[in-house]
């Protein structure tokens, strides 16, 4: 009986040894990397579905419950997932507000592209003041995301787990570097190839793999294609010999098909994020799918 009491008294003290770090991520890609680093020592909840354009997620009350108990919030940042802010406010969880140890903005340290200069206004469309937020589409940035998440986990997890997280993060980064070499060599023959997409989702991808971004079907971010813009784009593509249209799974196909018909370019439907297409469940399959679709189209 006395032993039972001793165990019952010691039990709460031992709980942190097997307590999992509760992590809430805004998009599936971040959840995947958190699981890669945290393994069985983390409990991960994803707020938005991968099929949803991460710019347009409607906050819903039930998501507050996950945030209320979270130790760590992992977000894309750069105002892409600013819809999470009202949920964080509603959760009353000060552990995960901006400036707290449990707040991870994965864009920290990313070399940001297309940062608007001068006066910024909606005249330029749905512009992001911190620059293009689709930075995860570069394997080099995948490393930075991993480091940011690791730093967050180290801030909130018990020191006994730090070695475990560091080891797994290092292993993930090594695998990513190996795969990045493969992807780079697959796309090497197409260096300098000019392409267009619907939204400007592939700037980081193009920079990393040496492709040449000619333009987008949208005249400006978030603004639907216009006849005049499409006509100009067709002219530019013909003049510059662009033969590839990367169409993100979120967007309608009809404009891409019109342009393809006029220019002879191939339309390749690709996932811009993890979960955006069936079978694209992790960071590796995201690049595998995009790289293989491009090589197949241009071969």
């Amino acid at each position: 009986m006395r032993r039972l009491f001793q165990i019952l008294i010691l039990l709460p003290l031992l709980t942190p040894l097997w307590a999992k770090v509760k992590v809430v991520c805004t998009i599936p890609l971040l959840s995947y990397i958190v699981r890669e680093i945290g393994g069985e020592k983390v409990e991960v909840v994803t707020l938005a579905s991968g099929e949803r354009d991460p710019h347009y997620v409607e906050p819903r009350p039930s998501l507050v419950v996950s945030l209320r108990n979270a130790d760590l919030l992992v977000k894309v940042g750069m105002d892409l997932d600013m819809w999470v802010d009202s949920l964080v406010d509603a959760s009353r969880n000060t552990k995960i507000i901006w400036g707290s140890p449990g707040y991870v903005d994965c864009s920290l340290g990313i070399k940001k592209l297309e940062v608007p200069r001068g006066r910024i206004s909606p005249k330029e469309g749905e512009i992001h003041i911190y620059g293009n937020p689709h930075y995860w589409l570069s394997p080099a940035n995948g490393e930075i995301i991993t480091k940011n998440i690791l730093a967050g986990l180290l801030r909130v997890a018990p020191p006994s787990d730090h070695g475990f997280f560091k080891e797994r993060a290092d292993s993930f980064i090594s695998r990513l570097r190996e795969k990045a070499k493969e992807w780079k060599s697959s796309l090497a023959p197409f260096k300098g190839v000019k392409f267009v997409s619907y939204h400007r989702s592939f700037s980081y991808f193009a920079e990393y793999f040496g492709l040449d971004y000619l333009g987008t079907l949208e005249p400006k971010p978030g603004i639907p294609p216009s006849t005049a813009h499409i006509a100009q784009l067709i002219k530019d593509m013909k003049e510059q010999g662009a033969k590839l249209i990367l169409l993100e799974t979120y967007y309608p196909r009809k404009f891409a098909d019109i342009v393809a018909k006029e220019t002879g370019a191939k339309v390749v439907v690709v996932p811009p994020a993890v979960g955006a297409m069936k079978g694209v469940d992790d960071y590796f399959s995201l690049f595998d799918t995009i790289v293989s679709a491009i090589t197949k189209a241009l071969r």
């Binding site: 940042g77 750069m78 400036g99 864009s107 940001k112 480091k147």
Partner: peptide, 10 residues
């Protein structure tokens, strides 16, 4: 900004 330069997220 580079990874080393940024200290706090925006």
């Amino acid at each position: 900004g580079t990874y080393e330069e940024e200290i706090t997220p925006p």
